[in-house]
Write a protein that binds this DNA or RNA. Structure first.
Lengths: 234, 234
DNA sequence: TTCGTTATTTATCATTTGATAATTAATTAT
DNA sequence: ATAATTAATTATCAAATGATAAATAACGAA
């Protein structure tokens, strides 16, 4: 029986009630700044960007005006949170993984999504991504453009090659095909939404789930990919 | 070439700048209430539940205190929005669709997700679902429990039958199997997240996309479903 | 037309909230 | 030890926000 994992709220390490810095003042500025940013990430992930600066300060065990010594405004702190979250968690090596035809496609995809999960199946990441998406922040679009260009389109390319379909130079790439690859990505990412946004339990052995997802996708895609190309040209 | 659909923000009917009720006062109370609720749905879907009552009132073309004649508090209005959104959009007929073995499983699934899409691929629904999920509202959990019990578990049951696997009475249902069905649901629902939360374009011909999703899933699931049951007992 | 009812608005309150200024005190340099 | 520096706190401000009370005016009944 496959176990499930509960309590998505548990962020490893930081306890929730942690104004334990009772009398410890005068921290090294760069340390303090880092502490504020990290705290803000967790805080906004939990409460959304409408979370109050006073509550954030309380959580950090500092006073609210101190935030304004390090950031000129709440908005600038939020901006910093975006930077930290988005830029830190993309590994360019992933991009070279997909087109590596020395290995079977199923292996490549499984490997990619397992590693990607390690970076992204995370309370703060998922929730900040959703909150900023709903807010319509542009950095969100840019991130998704990378997903599309560096992962999904290459996946389609490899899928064609694997299934003996004509390359994109001969039969142009089309949106229906892109949706196919978004399907795999949706299987993958919606699990994170379920767990970290909705608070539902998720299977404990993520790796096995990913293996299944990829097998389902690659096997199933073979059955439909071809027909998309036929209908595609004119 | 498959077209794509842009501007997820467009909610059919109501224009965004609409305080056009310039001098028309004294509306029938039940009408007014309905108008407020509908306006609140669109408003909170757009701005989240932290949206300000004054902005909502402005959008409705009424004054802010009038809201409080119809709802004792902002929270009670939000509660009403939940009711309206969640209760109104579940069709019990869908539940009987899945187990109908007179039709091929692919047909049943395609039909269900097409009809479900008509109810749920919708700006306000998707966003309020996400906002309330992030907020941790219990009605969200209850809705997802219905999805699981009435759709996903039945899907697994039918999938077993279709692939000649032992019924649940013989080999018990397990979480890995459930994750399989969540995979299909994720393909489906993540498209809505992409479009309505992230603002990305989505293929115009939703029906065709759903057909592809279901074919990919059913074909691919056949390749992995069996192995889950073997490992499952003990 | 006049009057009574009540839907709606205007005026206002008490908190909350992002932000600033003045004050205090921890740490380092002399 | 003493003074200088500046991290951090305390004390506030002004605007925003949920909510209430009093005043107004639209509509139906007489």
């Amino acid at each position: 029986m496959v176990e499930t994992m509960d309590d998505p709220l548990s962020r490893a390490g930081q306890s929730k009630t942690k104004p334990l810095a009772d009398k410890r003042r005068r921290m090294n500025p760069s340390e303090r700044e880092a502490q504020i940013v990290e705290g803000a990430i967790g805080f906004f992930a939990e409460h959304g960007f409408e979370g109050k600066t006073r509550d954030l300060a309380k959580r950090l065990g500092i006073t609210q005006p101190l935030l304004y010594r390090y950031f000129p405004s709440k908005e600038s702190l939020i901006e910093r949170v975006y930077q930290e979250i988005y830029l830190q968690r993309w590994n360019p090596e992933w991009e070279s993984l997909i087109p590596d035809r020395d290995r079977p496609l199923v292996d490549r995809l499984t490997r990619f999504y397992k590693e990607y999960a390690r970076a992204v199946y995370d309370f703060v990441w998922v929730r900040i991504f959703l909150y900023s998406g709903l807010k319509g922040v542009d950095i969100n679009d840019r991130y998704l453009a990378i997903i599309k260009d560096k992962i999904l389109v290459p996946v389609c390319r490899e899928l064609r090659h694997d299934n003996g379909l004509p390359p994109m130079e001969d039969v142009p790439f089309n949106n229906e095909e892109l949706e196919l690859a978004w399907g795999l990505h949706g299987m993958f990412f919606y699990r994170a939404v379920r767990h970290f946004a909705y608070g539902l339990p998720i299977a404990k052995d993520i790796d096995r789930v990913i293996e299944n997802d990829v097998r389902v996708f690659v096997t199933g895609a073979r059955a439909v990919h071809g027909s998309m190309l036929e209908r595609a040209d004119r």
